[in-house]
């Protein structure tokens, strides 16, 4: 599903350049649930940006669903993001003046899907995250866990090949975190590839594989026995 070979990335900071990714090689297969761990400055955010086609690598190759991601213009990058990837952020990032269902339907609007099927699909996905009754509520009327569920529904509504989650539980208490992880595990069980960036050990342990990043390099890459979030709840 994802194949990264020798990905290099540096940022210019004045006269100096900061070498952030120093040759990342990573292959992620369909249906995997991978935690990317690392302290701040390890390059995990940069890696996520590259995986999410929000930034481009300086060198190395990136294949997403056997499609090479290279020299994309903004429009094409946007279309790929929309089609292949779903994003979940730490701070939920729902659009505050739109209702839950409108937030979920938004990515479909960019695909120019007609209103009726948009509404239908959005409703379906809101139901899947257990928020069918909250569809007409605005984000400020929802709890943190509910907001993140809406965000997950929004990320999945386009049926992306990969779900990218950047510290999805970072703003949630532990109980809500585990509930959310249970949902993500369920989604993963249905075949969705999920990549979670986190620095929390217990969250990482609920994935099937942990990739540890340090100073722009992968220092550890291990498959683990997944802990079921439902056991904690």
């Amino acid at each position: 599903m994802i194949k990264l070979s020798n990905i290099q990335k540096s940022y210019k900071l004045g006269k100096n350049s900061l070498h952030v990714l120093k040759g990342i090689n990573l292959e992620i297969k369909e249906g995997e649930m991978v935690a990317i761990m690392g302290s701040s400055g390890s390059g995990k955010s940069t890696l996520l940006n590259i995986l999410g086609i929000l930034d481009s690598q300086d060198s190395g190759t990136y294949f997403l669903d056997s499609q090479e991601i290279k020299n994309l213009d903004e429009t094409k990058a946007a279309n790929y993001r929309n089609k292949f990837l779903g994003f979940v952020f730490q701070s939920f990032n729902l659009i505050s003046y739109k209702t839950a269902i409108q937030n979920v339907a938004l990515p479909l609007q960019f695909q120019k899907i007609n209103r009726k099927s948009r509404q239908k699909r959005a409703k379906e996905f809101l139901g899947m995250v257990g928020l069918a009754e909250w569809s007409t509520h605005h984000p400020n009327e929802l709890s943190g866990g509910q907001k993140q569920r809406v965000a997950i529904a929004r990320a999945l509504v386009t049926q992306p090949r990969v779900l990218l989650a950047d510290e999805p539980t970072g703003a949630l208490d532990s109980k809500t975190s585990y509930e959310l992880m249970e949902l993500l595990q369920k989604i993963n069980d249905s075949g969705e590839t999920i990549i979670i960036v986190t620095h929390e050990e217990d969250i990482a342990s609920m994935c099937k594989r942990i990739v540890n990043l340090k100073d722009g390099k992968i220092v550890e890459d291990k498959h683990i026995k997944q802990k079921l979030a439902s056991e904690y709840v």
Partner: peptide, 16 residues
């Protein structure tokens, strides 16, 4: 900025 950033992340094209 933030709202536009979100939209771009979930697939809004520059022309959108």
């Amino acid at each position: 900025t933030k709202e536009l950033g979100i939209k771009i992340a979930i697939g809004a094209t520059p022309s959108n």
